[in-house]
Design a protein around this nucleic acid. Structure first.
Lengths: 191, 191
DNA sequence: TAGTTTGCCTAAACACTTTAGGCAGCATAC
DNA sequence: GTATGCTGCCTAAAGTGTTTAGGCAAACTA
């Protein structure tokens, strides 16, 4: 019985690759075992359950994404930063659809709090430093930013823009122009 | 063998209810059979497969939503229409989380084209009539609108805003204010 | 080298999906 | 009012995924 050298890390990484290939919903403990040419039960020493595996893949994706965003934002400000920020998500979703889907998995509150999720919020907030938005409006502005980026990327991934012209790649820069314009002219809060 | 009177319509409606109760991912032919107190195999005369069932639930949800949006938009224009439009989606997602998730199912191109999906696009486009946006910018504007609404609602549903103040219900009106402001001051396309 | 840990195994129970083939309830035709 | 046929729900069975219990051998540790 040759030992293959399974570890949680290897399993999670392979699971993420599998997700990118066949879709996050298709990631299964069985499929992962096949990929390592190992019996299914063997994985259960490393991973508690199918749900646990998926959660770990989600955490990996969130980390990777946060690292990429942090890199992209370094040394940029204003629209430059905004565009870089948004493109990281969109490019990642295209290059790693399974991982991106994983990053959208509903985590339970404690897990979510310990994940890279909050880092994403902070990074988004950092972009606002390049714009003149009152502190009190930062939360809604960050949420809008996240909504637009996630919304566009996810509708695009779901084929929502596939059957109308022009191509979704063409309208994307316009979306960013609009977002930049909005942040430059953020409306005053009503009295 | 008392006949229960299964029909595709009853199954799909019950499936949608089930989705709202336990989550769309948990909707299963078996669970549906249990709900009708009928053997699993019996459902397969009405529904081709589990995938078929889910697709039909998705189509139902898209129809319901489009009808609600159409109703809400009747007799409204400008920001009034925008707010009504966005609220339909958000309220629907809160009241019917499973149906809303179903509406986001990836449909194959032909099915998607025959669904109420295109109606959603048309309804969103109708909102722009209340704003002064050049025809050539309608597509990006509609996509932005859809992205913000879907993005916010889906991040909210995923608990993305759950662990930061203020409550997501409080920032929502500000998001709509911002969206309205953006549509009123849509940036000119770069030369 | 002996003992302990630990990695991967076999075996088995349980759930969901899907197909094949059977029998009985119901509607129609006479 | 009975015969005929369709259809709805059934039983049976095979395939796949999840998960747990318990075993054997490989690899550290002394």
């Amino acid at each position: 019985m040759a030992r293959v050298g399974l570890t949680v890390e290897r399993l999670v990484r392979a699971g993420a690759d599998l997700a990118d290939e066949v879709g996050f919903d298709e990631v299964t403990v069985s499929a992962l075992a096949r990929r390592f040419d190992v019996k299914v039960a063997s994985l259960y020493s490393h991973v508690k359950s199918s749900r646990d595996l998926k959660t770990r893949i989600a955490l990996l994706a969130l980390e990777e994404l946060a690292d990429l965003v942090a890199d992209a934002l370094a040394g940029r400000a204003g629209k430059d930063a905004l565009v870089a920020f948004a493109n990281v998500y969109r490019d990642y979703a295209h290059a790693h659809p399974g991982r991106y889907a994983a990053a959208r998995l509903d985590l339970d509150p404690e897990t979510a709090a310990a994940s890279a999720g909050p880092r994403h919020t902070q990074l988004a907030a950092a972009i606002l430093r390049g714009y003149d938005i009152p502190e009190s409006e930062h939360v809604p502005a960050v949420r809008l930013l996240g909504s637009v980026v996630h919304g566009y990327v996810s509708l695009e991934a779901g084929g929502g823009f596939a059957h109308s012209a022009p191509d979704s790649a063409e309208t994307w820069p316009r979306i960013l122009d609009a977002l930049d314009a909005l942040l430059r002219n953020w409306p005053a809060a009503p009295s």
